[in-house]
């Protein structure tokens, strides 16, 4: 019974960037195991919160089929639609097909997909923790860090407590400004990782900064490179089609 309050205090300390919480996590003999529990628990809590929020949204939204019917009826009353129909009689069929597709007017994800996301969230959190923890550890060691791999994993697990901000999703329609939750939890997570790595590895500020940032920077470079490759391939394909005389 003593474990729960200390775990809650630890998480709150991690969220508020308290260096003593990160030191405690670094020095705990079962730091990695406790970190694993933290990551899974936070992932599950956030997933369940999002599920409850989605349920609330679906209960306050009209039936998607009724929405499709109202839109079709409303469109048929508009002058522009009548004119377009005279020019292209097949428009009505194609429009009806697209409007009556399942999920076309569902403003919230289906409960089944929400449930799947809830179950998958802890595993994605776990995967993210292991990958980012490994990259941060390699970078910190390269900069002269002193902590073991287990200690790095232990403190980066505590840094994932920033994901707890996602609990606001328990309120339906909570993310009104899209991206604010992602930006806030992402930046707080970066700061928490900075504090954790600094406490674990005992590195100076600038070395810690680069050790923490190198992973996200590499990821960004990878995304940009992939994007450029895709654009290059598409541009080449379009160019060759144009030369082919189409």
């Amino acid at each position: 019974m003593d474990v729960q309050p200390s775990l809650v205090r630890l998480v709150v300390g991690g969220l508020l960037l308290d260096p003593s919480a990160y030191r405690a996590q670094r020095d705990h003999p079962a730091g990695v195991r406790r970190g694993l529990v933290l990551v899974l628990l936070i992932g599950l809590l956030v997933g369940v919160a999002a599920l409850i929020g989605d349920l609330g949204e679906s209960l306050t939204q009209p039936d998607p089929e009724a929405v499709s019917e109202v839109i079709l009826r409303g469109l048929s009353r508009m002058p522009w639609y009548q004119e377009a129909l005279e020019e292209n009689p097949e428009l009505a069929v194609s429009l009806e097909q697209s409007l009556t597709q399942p999920g076309a007017f569902s403003l919230t994800p289906s409960l089944l997909s929400s449930l799947v996301i809830t179950l998958l969230t802890p595993f994605f959190s776990l995967l993210g923790w292991l990958i980012s923890g490994t990259i941060v550890h390699i970078a910190a060691k390269a900069f002269g860090g002193a902590a073991s791999f287990g200690q790095t994993l232990a403190v980066t697990a505590l840094a994932s407590s920033a994901s707890l901000l996602g609990l606001v999703q328990i309120v339906p329609y909570a993310e009104q400004l899209p991206g604010a939750l992602g930006v806030a939890s992402g930046l707080l997570g970066l700061l928490a990782t900075y504090v954790g790595v600094r406490e674990a590895h005992g590195l100076p500020a600038w070395r810690t900064f680069w050790a923490v940032l190198i992973g996200p920077l590499l990821l960004m470079l990878l995304v940009v490179a992939l994007y450029c490759c895709v654009v290059f391939v598409f541009a080449g394909a379009i160019g060759s089609l144009a030369q082919g005389g189409i």
Partner: peptide, 27 residues
């Protein structure tokens, strides 16, 4: 019509504004 009354949706939207505005400032 919706499963829950229109007023519940309005309450949810108000509550959403209350909990998400601090996140906007925090970000």
């Amino acid at each position: 019509p919706t499963a829950l009354p229109w007023g519940v949706q309005l309450f949810f939207r108000w509550l959403a504004s209350v909990v998400s505005t601090p996140l906007n400032y925090l970000a």
